[in-house]
């Protein structure tokens, strides 16, 4: 049967996609410094070592501050843009939206160097703050994509009905729109948090002396002896991302179900 071959191919493809993620915990729990087969035994020592690395702790703190700020700011910007594009028509909409969504396809290194040049030119010191600026830029297109679908499934007459029943603009937003798009907002916060937490190049260029987690990880790749700890860290990060994404997907779907829409598929 035709579908059968497709299924075999699909499963092989999934194996290809998941190969690194499957191998990751093998080395994280492997009792050897060298990252190679065969494996030499089970150990949790790399996790213990990970807990004790001070530089990692600093990088983690930086990354969390950046990811939370980038998530909040880009989701806020995303709410404005998604609301404006789904509800109103105005001149130059396509052009403006094209610019805002550009980071989706623009190589991140271009975003990174162009921001670097401008920030240094303005005399701004590189820090966590400059990384946040860059991350907001690349997270915003994703938040807009998620929030647009949330706002799109919102029937405009719901707002009018609330308004008609005596509510003002702000109270309509609070009582009707916000509760209905809340799942989209949560999903957008989680996704942009995940993107920022994982982003390397922009942080690499803009972090100055305040490394983020990926910058720290990249720097450790140079020292073979610290790679197992990175594998342990990676395992934790992968579990965390999967958890966050599952929650995000749950809220995204609940949002669609709540406003009576139909699920049209993934995040992008």
């Amino acid at each position: 049967m035709k579908g059968g071959w497709f299924k075999v191919y699909a499963l092989a493809y999934l194996l290809f996609l998941y190969a690194p993620i499957i191998i990751l915990p093998m080395f994280a729990f492997n009792d050897a410094t060298v990252i190679a087969f065969p494996l030499s035994g089970f150990s949790t020592r790399w996790f213990d070592e990970m807990m004790q690395a001070p530089a990692l702790r600093i990088a983690l703190k930086n990354s969390l501050i950046i990811a939370v700020s980038a998530a909040v700011i880009s989701t806020t910007l995303g709410i404005f843009a998604a609301r404006a594009t789904t509800r109103y028509r105005f001149p130059a909409k396509a052009g403006i939206m094209g610019l805002i969504m550009l980071p989706l396809v623009l190589p991140e290194i271009i975003v990174a160097v162009s921001l670097l040049v401008v920030l240094l030119g303005l005399g701004v010191n590189l820090s966590i703050f400059t990384v946040i600026l860059g991350h907001v830029l690349i997270c915003t297109p994703f938040t807009i994509a998620i929030l647009s679908s949330a706002f799109q499934s919102l029937d405009q007459s719901l707002e009018e009905a609330a308004y008609d029943l005596g509510e003002s603009g702000p109270s309509t937003f609070r009582l009707i729109i916000l509760p209905l798009v809340m799942p989209g907002i949560i999903s957008s916060l989680l996704i942009s948090f995940t993107i920022s937490l994982d982003e390397f190049i922009i942080a690499f260029f803009l972090a100055g002396t305040e490394p983020t987690l990926p910058v720290y990880i990249f720097s450790q790749f140079r020292f073979p002896s610290s790679v197992p700890v990175i594998m342990a860290l990676g395992t934790v990060l992968v579990c965390l991302s999967i958890l966050l994404l599952t929650i995000a997907e749950y809220f995204r779907r609940r949002g669609i179900a709540k406003s009576g829409g139909k699920d049209t598929g993934g995040f992008l």
Binding site: L158, D164, G166
Partner: peptide
Amino acid sequence: VPANKRPTNMVFQSYAIFPH
């Protein structure tokens, strides 16, 4: 006079029942 201050109320084509 804005919609929320008018002595009229409306039944919408889609009914606009608040789903939540």
